[in-house]
Write a protein that binds this DNA or RNA. Structure first.
Lengths: 151, 151
DNA sequence: ACAAATGATACTATGATAGTATCATTAAAA
DNA sequence: TTTTAATGATACTATCATAGTATCATTTGT
């Protein structure tokens, strides 16, 4: 019963990471050093994000990836849509077989409502809201301390 | 991204079914006729429910299963606990690596909160609330109409 | 030319979920 | 007392989404 898969998880981390860099573009090699993500997997994920228009990519030496959108305009639900087939918590498990005296069974109604609520809440979490100072750039102090603190 | 697995789903249906019968005990053979669940799978599920103290079982000819508890005291979260290892929607995916300037990252806080809310809501759905008249017994009219209506 | 990057794409591995199979035991009924 | 219809226990197999790997082609700065 997981809400977020690795794909989505890693994508979030990578986007946060890129958002926090000052460079024009960030190569995979650099991300792999800081984020604990297998290189080929991360590569695939970034390619997907690039294909989906969330990242701009630059080939060749000195190339890498940069955000196509402002960190405040990238939401977790966007990533879930890309990496997790269905955002469907239920699929009318009773298929009209149960709850004979109701137009729509309580189960389905509740599940639909829960799902709607979960998605609404996830849709409010942006990349910007996940990084420290919220402006998408990492402060010098943060950069100097290296990696991400254990706090 | 499923909240409810087949195990849980089938268990719910079976419990609803049993709750709606007037007999003292309901054999698998009978359930299989009405519910669209593979017999050996349903058997396994019922055995589990029996082992967990949610069903009483009677062996031998004329045997079967009956509810150990009132339908109003059996909740979906009970079944999820039995059949779905973790009721955990997230597992602190950032593992303290992100959100350097916060004691607890927004992501984790939000996910925990969402999870709590989902579970609270699921914990309110009882077997009784899923069956038509709520008293755990099927009316004669309902029984006569056979199966479960498409309404 | 070389090195360092992404693009495209096919492949493998793992694990949870889903489902099957079989033999043993019980108990009512013929 | 034998048969039959039920559950108990338990081991096995199948499927599928998730997770991850591998490789060759292309681009581009030095």
């Amino acid at each position: 019963m997981k809400l977020i898969t690795r794909n989505t998880d890693y994508a979030m981390r990578a986007l946060c990471y890129i958002a926090q860099q000052t460079k024009d573009s960030v190569p995979v090699t650099e991300m792999v050093k800081d984020l604990a993500i297998p290189r080929p997997f991360l590569r695939k994920i970034l390619q997907t994000l690039s294909g989906e228009g969330m990242l701009d990519s630059y080939r060749g030496q000195g190339g890498g990836f940069s955000l196509s959108l402002s960190p405040s305009k990238i939401f977790i639900t966007d990533l879930i849509k890309i990496f997790q087939n269905a955002i469907q918590l239920n699929e009318c498990i009773f298929k009209k077989k149960m709850c004979p005296n109701r137009k729509t069974c309580l189960m389905k109604r509740e599940m639909d409502s829960i799902e709607k609520d979960v998605l609404l809440r996830l849709s409010r979490i942006s990349i910007a809201s996940l990084i420290s100072n919220g402006n998408g750039k990492r402060s010098n102090r943060e950069r100097k301390e290296g990696r991400y603190g254990e706090a």
